[in-house]
Design a protein around this nucleic acid. Sequence first.
DNA 1: TATCTTTTAGAAATCGTTTTCTATATAGTC
DNA 2: GACTATATAGAAAACGATTTCTAAAAGATA
Lengths: 341, 341
Amino acid sequence: MSPTSSVNPKQANLSDVAKHAGVAVSTVSRVLNGNKKNFSVRPEVRRQIHASADRLGYRPNINARTLRGQKTGYVAVLGLRMLARAVHDPSDSVVDRMADALASQDMHLTSTFVGSRGGAYAMPPWQVESAVVVRATRPEDFAEVERSGLPYVSINNPAGPGGSSVLVDDRAGMLDALNHLFDLGHRRIAYCHRADRFGVHYSQSERLETYRAFAAQRGLHDMIYGLEAEGDTDGRIDALIGSGATAVVTYNHYVAMDVIQAADRLYKSVPRDLSLVTFNDEYPMAFMHPGITCVAHPADQMAEVASRLLLEKIGGGASSSVRLPLSMVVRGSTAPPSAVV
Amino acid sequence: MSPTSSVNPKQANLSDVAKHAGVAVSTVSRVLNGNKKNFSVRPEVRRQIHASADRLGYRPNINARTLRGQKTGYVAVLGLRMLARAVHDPSDSVVDRMADALASQDMHLTSTFVGSRGGAYAMPPWQVESAVVVRATRPEDFAEVERSGLPYVSINNPAGPGGSSVLVDDRAGMLDALNHLFDLGHRRIAYCHRADRFGVHYSQSERLETYRAFAAQRGLHDMIYGLEAEGDTDGRIDALIGSGATAVVTYNHYVAMDVIQAADRLYKSVPRDLSLVTFNDEYPMAFMHPGITCVAHPADQMAEVASRLLLEKIGGGASSSVRLPLSMVVRGSTAPPSAVV
DNA sequence: TATCTTTTAGAAATCGTTTTCTATATAGTC
DNA sequence: GACTATATAGAAAACGATTTCTAAAAGATA
């Protein structure tokens, strides 16, 4: 017989602790929850209760607790999908930082890992009091959380009527990227965008429109290379590189990797033959050689604002939407164009 | 007043449905759950109950249900730390796949995002029935889960006495990598390892020992470049590249990126001047140019085995530990050494 | 000493569901 | 007609925690 097959000595419950400490369950409950309302205990009893709870490894049953109707302090994180498989975006950093910010309010982010079976935007089966939605791109992503009527905040996407949202100023971000290249002397600037893997993101149209407006205003050629999910991506990128563009802005770090790879394959050098700016300062943009110039999301600030908006909603406040500025992180992938073209 | 502050019209419960249908709660419960045991109803009553439930939008309270049913179906995932900031490893994929596998058993992976405040290996405050531990490197990482007495499985690390574990055969993996390079004709093969960011992993010593044994057996020079967390990493890697090695094996994808960057900086070309094999087939190894040859973890198989071991533990079975083989994914970063050295 | 407050703590109700225990009709058999 | 199955349901007891009542002991005040 295995040493561990003696099994779980059945989770201790409040009554077990009470018996062990020689007091009533209500007393244990109040002591462990620090409930001071019309209540006090002798220090030695308090100590004994804590000792007993510790000894028995007491762990509250969340079902009983929430059934009774107390607040859980749990916040659902919707939209996480999978941890791995390279589906990372700036929202991840924001969620990390929100975990810190909300912990000080005794609120805990929780999530159900749904794997690949979909349902990433389904409310968890346990009771939560609010939610954070990430990576939502389709209206139906908000359906469940809207139906729940709970306060929520959406990261980097416009929320439904019941939620607040934290967005970034993609127009200004695109303008920064283009001006950076223009000021370096580039006049043949391409934009390489791609449909988001899971849907259409508002940044796509905003960046595209801004690019077009910029090109028109400065009298530059439109050099737009759209990568469809199903199309001949490699061919499009090869065409881009052969187009005589001296600089390119890419929609995200994945596209940037594709461009770098293609440039390498076609014996073009970054930034000598092609300057590169990408949205999303995600791994490994900072670790490439040369480092990639990025339009970066203000993750700290986004987390701070998102936490604030969520607390406001919980407090009964109205929905609101805040837009934050993106910032340029200049690295080695951008330089003046070579004299010879 | 905000449009959403009119709030939820209070969820209907079983008693509401019973009243509406003119029957007892127990009858409603049995009908809605299709409970046939010692029970039957007249068809018209059954129809009426379904109609009432539909009409009132009845949704069972999961807390009450699981409270009564005595099992929550929640599995804690310990050790996730942060989502972002480039701290990914093969365990992430395994967790994703386990979420799928366990969902069919009505088990849900749950996690508390702890942000940067530590405590990644603390049991969550709610009641779970088992746990999955990832990225544990120190004995104390298992302390809490061991203390809980719950069945658990550790991914890619030897568990404590109370848990099962799924490991990989790092010795064989290293041997595969070395043989691959040796067979290509390489005789000056370096190994570039690094202390894990969060502790010492069993793979470190196994790979190192295997490298040494291989070199001794084949009569090759030991070319070991250990990167300490605090040391002059860049200098060490530059030395490696200047050492005349024709091939290098790196401890993980982060180190591989460092080596690639250094090679680029020193005008060395992969694989012409240096072949590269790395452990961990993580992003963006497959997307580099050339693609990086990897020793890959069998994520699907690890997930499958881990799920099975967990269920066995839950069923009262003994702890066990399974080692799975790594596999070579050959890409463009490895080639025969150039004639000229 | 008698009365009032405060401290300290227990008993019991409650949350929504499942399930066991009971109970009444109705149908079938002799 | 008496007796036994069977069909059909309701009543009530859990599950584990929180919280509202309730109450005894200890201390303060007159």
